[in-house]
Computed example of a mutant assay.
Amino acid sequence: MDHKLANLVPYSRPATPGIHSSQTIGFIGLGSMGFYMARNLAKRAIPPGVPPTPLVVWNRTIDKSQKLQNQLGKELITIAKDIDEICSCDILITNLSNDEVVKDIYGKLARVLKLSPPVKTKIFVETSTILPPLAGELDVLISGLAHSHFISCPVFGRPNVADKAQLLLVMAGDYRSKKEVAYLFVPAVGRKVVDLGENVEKAPTFKLLGNSMILGAMEVVAEAFTLGSKAGIEPERINDLIGDILPAPGLMGYADRMMRDDFNGVDGFSLEGGIKDASHVRRLTAQYGAPMPIIDIAHQRLITARAIHTAQKEEGTETLDLLDWTALIAGSRVAAGLDPFHSRKRKAVVEEA
């Protein structure tokens, strides 16, 4: 085994190195993250002399599937006409927007496979950010199918990180299935695997813990930008300070977007996704009796930003169709009497005598 890869994947290689060339892989959900994950998976390194097996993709709207096929060609991408067709794949990967969609898709997959039970091993890989109990429900559902295994594998990273195949992968579930998927995903989709054992609920819990750290840090940074604006300190100065004292690449990227008032969610993580994740974290804090006050505040900020954006849409004054979750700073700005989305539109600081 390559020594460097051994440090990134906490499992020995499967009996046959890598995924068997004859195995078919399906990918459901070509959103802002799934598109890049599927693309990189289709382009993964194949042993010399082995013809590539096309990645089978399905999305609720076919335009994204067609876009991916146009980019890579029919040799690497096959478009499934429906759920029934993609169910024939040996490994099925899902990356979906929210828990409701996840439940709906897995329910449809299970119904198809109950009518036509698998005759060989099939692995389901759920990569979305969902509530932990839902992962448990999916495990029970899939385990009830012949020869089928489920693993939970949420990912850390924005779309630009997915684009570069640098996602952090968190896995929980059937051990042998994790081994197969880990060597399929690294380095094609992500840079490293974190193993959380066989309890599939641990991986989404871990993901939500990580997102709570990110969201909490974003709220602190948003408040600092807002106070700086009120005090007459240029946002560029504050952004430089963040780089000097809190030089975390992810946080610096979010801070940079706030500084530039770049809240376009098309190439980022959507505001709705942030609200969903904050809500999930709050449910965990209630379940375990472990309060996270800063997440409560951040959740309020996100909802405020959505309300402002909705009002702008109704008035026809909005400039963006989809907001990035860094728009949570709008709540802090409005509370301080500033423009929600344009930091330069502010009153000069006036010191009272």
Rank of each mutant, 00 (worst) to 15 (best):
D195T: 10
R237G: 07
M258K: 00
I303L: 13
T310H: 08
D139F: 06
L96G: 03
F341E: 02
D139I: 07
S332D: 07
M218Y: 04
G273M: 02
T78Q: 15
D256L: 03
M218T: 12
H299D: 04
L8E: 08
S343A: 11
A330Y: 06
L251N: 02
P14Q: 14
T94C: 12
R191N: 14
A6N: 09
R344G: 06
D244E: 13
A327S: 10
G274T: 08
D139W: 01
K276L: 06
E219F: 01
P247G: 12
A311N: 10
A335C: 07
K179G: 14
N7S: 15
D163Y: 07
L169H: 06
G34F: 09
A330T: 09
Q66R: 10
L209Y: 05
N211L: 08
N70L: 13
E314Q: 08
S22Y: 13
A188T: 04
A231I: 05
M33P: 05
I19H: 03
D296W: 00
P247E: 08
E315L: 14
R344H: 11
S65P: 11
P340K: 03
G253F: 01
S332L: 05
G228K: 02
S148Y: 01
V155Y: 04
I123Y: 04
T16I: 15
S97L: 04
Q71Y: 10
D163M: 14
L320A: 12
F35G: 05
A45T: 11
E75D: 10
S279R: 08
G73R: 13
V119R: 13
I91Q: 03
D163I: 01
A348N: 13
